[in-house]
């Protein structure tokens, strides 16, 4: 099975996103249960660590890929790769916008019914609204990379 540069790149991003943000959400669940100033600070540190880790790991692996496949890196995909990317972006956008709409709905509910505020939530995850948006973003990224991989394999 021979993969194009863009397909390998999509695999790297897909696996890195699962690994790094999987770790993030597992660590975040460990912080859930009490939404105090201490857990908020811990969640912010975790977020900073994850963002730096994400940039470093993706850069290193994509750099290694470019060194191993210089012609592919120089070409940076052809028209079919761009077509696949556009379609995959569209699927990712649907997931992201669904997440954003859910969060907006939740914010409206909290505005109208203050009794459902975050402090009384059964999840009690620090900065829950931000994390719901973050989860939507991560899910949309996974959809985007997953769709790219599938369309490359199915010969879109």
């Amino acid at each position: 099975m021979e993969l194009t540069f863009k397909e390998k790149s999509a695999w790297i991003s897909f696996i890195c996103t699962i690994g790094i943000f999987g770790y993030y959400f597992v660590e975040l669940m460990a912080l859930s249960g009490s939404d105090t100033g201490q857990t908020r600070t811990a969640a912010l540190w975790l977020l900073g660590k994850i963002l730096i880790m994400s940039v470093v790991v993706e850069s290193v692996f994509h750099g290694m890929l470019a060194v191993a496949n210089p012609s592919g890196a120089q070409m940076n995909g052809d028209e079919r790769d761009r077509h696949i990317e556009q379609k995959a972006n569209q699927y990712g956008y649907y997931v992201l916008s669904t997440g954003v709409i859910i969060v907006i709905g939740r914010m409206v509910v909290l505005e109208v019914f203050p009794g459902f505020d975050e402090a009384r939530s059964s999840l009690a995850i620090p900065m829950l609204t931000m994390h719901m948006l973050m989860f939507s973003f991560v899910l949309s990224e996974l959809t985007r990379f997953g769709a790219q991989i599938l369309m490359h394999r199915w010969g879109e």
């Binding site: 021979e2 194009t4 540069f5 397909e7 592919g72 070409m75 995909g77 052809d78 028209e79 079919r80 790769d81 077509h83 490359h152 199915w154 010969g155 879109e156």
Partner: peptide, 18 residues
Amino acid sequence: GVTRQTIMAIEKGKYSPS
């Protein structure tokens, strides 16, 4: 000026080129 996979997809009728 395309990838081999694109030629393969065109031959299989799975992708219509520009």
